[in-house]
Design a protein around this nucleic acid. Structure first.
Lengths: 150, 150
DNA sequence: TGCAAATAGTTATTATGTTAACTAATTTGT
DNA sequence: ACAAATTAGTTAACATAATAACTATTTGCA
């Protein structure tokens, strides 16, 4: 069959490992960049701040979907961001189970200060890769995701 | 230049996110598979058991390198595996700072019981992908890694 | 030989990942 | 209208991620 993976001695999950390793590397190096700038913020906190910067007032459920994180994780990270005065929780008047999460001015400033750092980081990480490469990468990773979600 | 990433409005790190999301999905689904079989073992514990199955007696430093995890993480996971009697720590006679980690029979049995589950999981995840796809995936992810480690 | 530097591993701290169990509010079906 | 099911969010418990600070060894080198 055409889908066999290397040879029989390939007992180790080389490709899954490669994907996880790369994801870790990206996160680690991005974390380093954030530290270097003295941002004093974690990668996951950044991700949520950035989502709110793109669309302010998301509720926690929507943030969970968009960031691919679980609800308890969102609760905790929002707690941290609230303590540091980057966001506030606003009770939703239509549905009192919901909180709309709003960036404060301080939160918005933080995102805007870090945007150049982020852009630079990406430029470094993706350098030398072509449009074609991105398309292929996307196709393969989405195939794996779809295989698993069956 | 040939390396630009889509358009200017692509402020979000779509590809980095895609890689991380896929890595998470793989881990999550593998975790589900392990639970379904009643294995009562985490993915990270499996990874270390499997490394030891491939080469018994590795020290913690070598395990850290091979699994891409940090030393404190290895300490804790080995502690868990020890409590569950899957491994033992043997003092290295050449270098008394080192422990050689050895699979017990119980640990070896655990790995062998789970190997078919793991193989099945991989078959599902990678189905429909060609040798060519794997090569491309590998090239791209290694390019990103190498870009970051510069 | 002797002492500084490097190495293997642990402990502690803070943050996130994952699941289960829970509260409170809303929606659905009849 | 109302009980049952669903949904948004929290709390708790346990495991991993990352870094710093530490102990105990071993190695490098003047």
């Amino acid at each position: 069959m055409s889908t066999k993976i290397k040879t029989a001695e390939d007992q180790d999950n080389a490709y899954g490992f490669l994907i996880e390793r790369t994801a870790k590397l990206i996160k680690q190096h991005f974390h380093q960049q954030l530290r270097k700038t003295g941002a004093d913020i974690t990668v996951d906190q950044w991700v949520i701040l950035h989502e709110l910067y793109k669309e302010n007032g998301l509720n926690q459920y929507e943030i969970a979907i968009r960031t691919f994180k679980h609800p308890p994780t969102i609760t905790r990270i929002i707690d941290h961001l609230y303590k540091r005065k980057f966001v506030v929780r606003e009770m939703d008047t239509q549905d009192r189970r919901r909180f709309n999460i709003l960036l404060t001015q301080q939160g918005r400033d933080k995102v805007e200060n870090l945007l150049p750092v982020v852009m630079n980081f990406r430029k470094q990480g993706w350098s030398g890769l072509t449009e074609e490469d991105f398309k292929t990468l996307q196709r393969i990773l989405e195939a794996v995701s779809s295989n698993l979600q069956r």
